[in-house]
Design a binder for these strands. Structure first.
Length: 572
DNA sequence: GCCGTTTTCGGCCCGACTGTTTTCAGTCG
């Protein structure tokens, strides 16, 4: 059983949880959490690093001890440390920590006083009224726990970025209409363009904060007011989405925006630098003693600690701080850099609009070219094209190109990669196209070895241009299939192929770490909408966000090329 | 448990809100 990075990270997180309940040194606990985060976001497997004889202690937050514990897990598949902890604390206690309002101290009390180990037992104790009698608990805490347990079963934990965007947009509009309100900005993981967001953090500048809080609590989508103070309030919307609003004075706007954009790990790292320079950084500004020396803008905050401005999508403490100090941050791709879209469907298969409608909508979205890439025949549910229907669509594209101005249609296909690595249409049919996107839509459960070989064999076909949604995952319903992405990226490089970054809100695939791998190997990425209707080009915004999270610049993106250059690249 | 342009020992980010308390611990972000 090979040990993946996520296994190591999961184990470290559980160790951190259990140590915390045990009352261990909080900094020791943090060390495990930091290590978990580092390992989880690595682009290479730690097992491979060990195999190549690379030192794990070179990784941030991994010292001799943790490097040894990782090696132990890779070698034996087990963590003696975790096994030892399980002798005194049951594994399910980690689950209890996920209930809002329950931290390590209270979970410890629940376990030691009432022998509560599981959510079920917690639920029963709350119903029986046994919790309110414990020291540090009360009737209110007990009923809150009860609510949270029932709520947990019913609601999704995190919201897709595109869904959160809908709630964010209308709430921002509503808050902006409050008298005396100046700025309203969504910060947090939403601003960092995370794939999913757990809550919305909204930052407001206003003369009088009380008015804002009253109006916020009165928003008609609010199901529950969790907390309401003079400068900070938390509500839960009917959809289950939690929203925090913070009000700060205008002169603190930059510091607060920086602070509430996070990530937490990034903020801690920046503040540590400030600390070394004798500066205190909080949401109100950067202070030397009592004197505020920065805070009006985010730039001023970063510059106070000797860093250049760091775009939100990079703020994960994954190397961006060192690069900012050296002035070597990438100039990230922007939505406006995209000149075209290389993946879209029409009514001919499972899309909702005609070829002409899709073309005109693409032009209206500011695009210069659009590749029409229907499904192939194996995907019968989508009414996929066979060679004859594909040829007819190509004729239609040829005719439309003669007619349309300001947009050029390219002839493509999203051809199924069959289980044995063959493509679903003959080479002869594919040879007439401008591009061939290969996609895995079946047999997701193959072994890592077989799945990787399957994709590599498909890439070997002479007309193969691009691999669609390379990991195959769907947020939040389907895990990625098991594939050696390192080999896929290198294979794409060897064969001159491209990788798609599918911008559909449920895909956002390539994931950020794989974008960095592609960048490292010099493989161009194409940010594609996978539009199935004329409105879907709006999703490109989320694809660009993901590309930015992957440190990509315009020069790393295939569809920032002008049409002529693009066609030359595709023809190679 | 990690880490070092003040340190190989002694630090480790910082503030708001709630509930259970009579001055603050716990939790959260």
């Amino acid at each position: 059983m090979p040990i993946h990075n996520s296994d190591v990270a999961d184990a470290f997180e559980e160790i951190a949880d259990l140590l915390e309940i045990e009352g261990a040194n909080p900094f020791r606990v943090r060390a495990y959490r930091n290590a978990a985060r580092t390992v989880r976001s690595l682009a290479v497997e730690v097992s491979q690093m060990l195999g190549r004889g690379e030192k794990l202690t070179d990784l941030p937050g991994i010292g001799e001890d943790l490097a040894g514990k990782i090696k132990e897990m890779v070698d034996t598949g087990k963590s003696p440390m975790l096994d030892k902890l399980h002798k005194t604390l049951p594994p399910a206690l980690s689950e209890l920590l996920k209930i809002p309002g329950l931290g390590p101290k209270r979970v410890g009390v629940l376990y030691h006083e009432l022998d509560i180990e599981t959510l079920d037992q917690l639920h029963r104790a709350a119903v029986d009224g046994r919790i309110r009698k414990l020291p540090g608990f009360g009737a209110k805490t007990e009923s809150r726990i009860l609510e949270q347990i029932t709520a947990r079963a019913a609601k999704p934990e995190r919201f897709k970025l595109a869904v959160a965007a809908q709630y964010a947009d209308s709430l921002v509009k509503y808050l902006k209409a409050t008298p005396g309100v100046d700025r309203v900005v969504v910060a947090g993981s939403f601003r960092r363009a995370s794939e999913t967001v757990g809550d919305l953090d909204i930052l407001v500048t206003a003369k009088r904060s009380g008015k804002v809080m009253d109006r916020f609590a009165a928003y008609d989508e609010v199901a529950e007011v969790v907390a309401k103070g003079p400068t900070r309030s938390t509500v839960v919307l009917r959809s289950g989405l939690q929203v925090d609003v913070r009000v700060v004075p205008e002169e603190s706007f930059g510091a607060a925006l920086y602070y509430f954009t996070g990530s937490k790990a990034h903020n801690i790292a920046v503040r540590r630098i400030g600390q070394k320079r004798g500066l205190k950084i909080n949401e109100y500004g950067v202070f030397r003693g009592k004197k505020r020396i920065a805070g009006e803008t985010e730039e001023s905050v970063y510059s106070a600690v000797g860093l250049s401005y760091i775009p939100p999508e990079l703020r994960e403490d994954r190397g961006e701080i060192d690069q900012a100090r050296a002035g070597r941050l990438p100039r990230l791709v922007e939505l406006g850099d995209l000149r075209g879209d290389l993946h879209a469907h029409t009514k001919a298969t499972d899309g909702h609009n005609t070829l002409r409608e899709m073309a005109e909508a693409a032009r209206a979205a500011g695009l210069e070219y659009l590749a029409v890439t229907e499904h192939s025949k194996r995907l019968t549910v989508a009414h996929g094209l066979d060679a004859a229907r594909l040829a007819r669509q190509c004729d239609e594209i040829y005719r439309l190109n003669g007619e349309l101005r300001g947009i050029t249609l390219l002839k493509g296909i999203e051809v199924d990669i069959l289980e044995d690595g063959r493509l679903d249409l003959p080479d002869k049919a594919l040879s007439k196209l401008d591009l061939v996107i290969g996609a895995v839509h079946s047999a997701f459960k193959l072994s890592r070895e077989k799945q990787t070989e399957r994709i590599l064999r498909a890439m070997d076909r002479p007309h193969f241009t691009m691999l669609a949604h390379p990991s195959g995952r769907l947020i939040p319903t389907r895990e990625p299939y098991d594939v050696d992405m390192g080999r896929v990226v290198r294979a794409a490089k060897d064969r001159g192929c491209f990788l798609e970054l599918n911008a559909h809100p449920e895909r956002l695939d390539l994931v950020a770490t794989h974008c960095q791998m592609a960048k490292g190997e010099g493989v161009l990425v194409s940010v594609n909408s996978d539009a199935h209707s004329a409105q879907d080009y709006a999703n490109l915004r989320f694809g660009v966000g993901q590309a930015r999270r992957g440190w990509l610049e315009a020069k790393h993106i295939l569809n920032t090329l002008p049409l002529k250059t693009l066609l030359e690249r595709l023809a190679r």
